[in-house]
């Protein structure tokens, strides 16, 4: 008779085990996010395009890259953000590359109110020794200055034709980064991920906006402003702030 008690208990336990709420709450979908580089509002063409700079010079962009740390979705109900990636290196360095590159992440289905990321290498990763990583990992791609200055958060490299003589003989190299410059960018958007009508997000960065705005252009004719490297980050702050402030998010 005592076994008669065990039977309903077993059925109850079995029924609880079949509860699929947990499964639903952790279901994930592929969530692609695109990154587009522009120059003056048009898709960036590495090396192949001549770009007019506000001071009258022409530029050929050779390299544009930046790190993205802690790419996160902000849940609608509050709570901890959902991390899509701890570190990404977004880079354009070849004429064969499209201006838009897409990375696909795994994200839980649900409602969200925003997207957030850090421009640069987050302080915890910036404290790491690059030799902790494999040689082909993004934090080990020769983007490390050294023990005191650590990772290069972003690079803009170009050849300029200052005299408009058709010769791009003035090299410009802006290598930026330090813990003090690390900047968090947040885009407030309400959206739902369910795998059916997910939004298409494109994070846009404009090289020209990093170098110049309507009132002030980085003086690329000044030899003191043609190179920013390593420990000279004090003069990079203005350039960095403009770079970090100009990110925009396109939603379709």
């Amino acid at each position: 008779m005592k076994y008669a008690l065990y039977l309903p208990l077993f059925i109850l336990l079995f029924a609880l085990g079949c509860d699929d709420d947990d499964v639903l709450s952790t279901q994930e979908v592929d969530f692609p996010i695109s990154f587009r580089a522009e120059f003056g509002g048009t898709p960036l063409a590495i090396q192949s395009a001549d770009y007019a700079y506000p001071t009258g010079a022409d530029l050929k962009i050779q390299l544009f890259q930046y790190y993205v740390s802690d790419l996160e979705l902000l849940p609608a109900g509050g709570g901890d953000p959902v991390q899509l990636s701890d570190i990404e290196l977004i880079r354009w360095m070849s004429a064969t590359e499209a201006a838009t590159t897409t990375r696909t992440f795994q994200a839980p289905i649900g409602d969200y109110v925003g997207l957030r990321f850090g421009v640069g290498v987050s302080p915890d990763l910036n404290a790491q020794d690059p030799s902790n990583f494999a040689a082909d990992f993004v934090l080990n791609e020769n983007e490390f200055w050294g023990p005191s200055t650590r990772y290069v958060f972003a690079k803009i490299e170009a050849n300029a034709d200052l005299e408009n003589d058709g010769t791009f003989d003035t090299p410009l190299t802006y290598h930026l980064g330090s813990d003090a410059l690390y900047t968090t960018v947040t885009f407030n958007r309400t959206f739902t991920l369910d795998g059916t009508q997910d939004p298409d997000f494109t994070i846009v960065a404009d090289v020209l906006k990093a170098l110049a705005d309507d009132t002030d252009s980085f003086d690329i004719a000044n030899p003191d402003q043609q190179r920013i490297h390593g420990g000279n980050q004090a003069i990079a702050t203005d350039l960095w702030n403009r770079l970090a402030d100009q990110f925009s998010l396109e939603t379709r």
Partner: peptide, 15 residues
Amino acid sequence: FIEDVPVGALHPGCG
């Protein structure tokens, strides 16, 4: 190496 290059200086910068 290139950690402490003076502003505007032309430098080997092999690193």
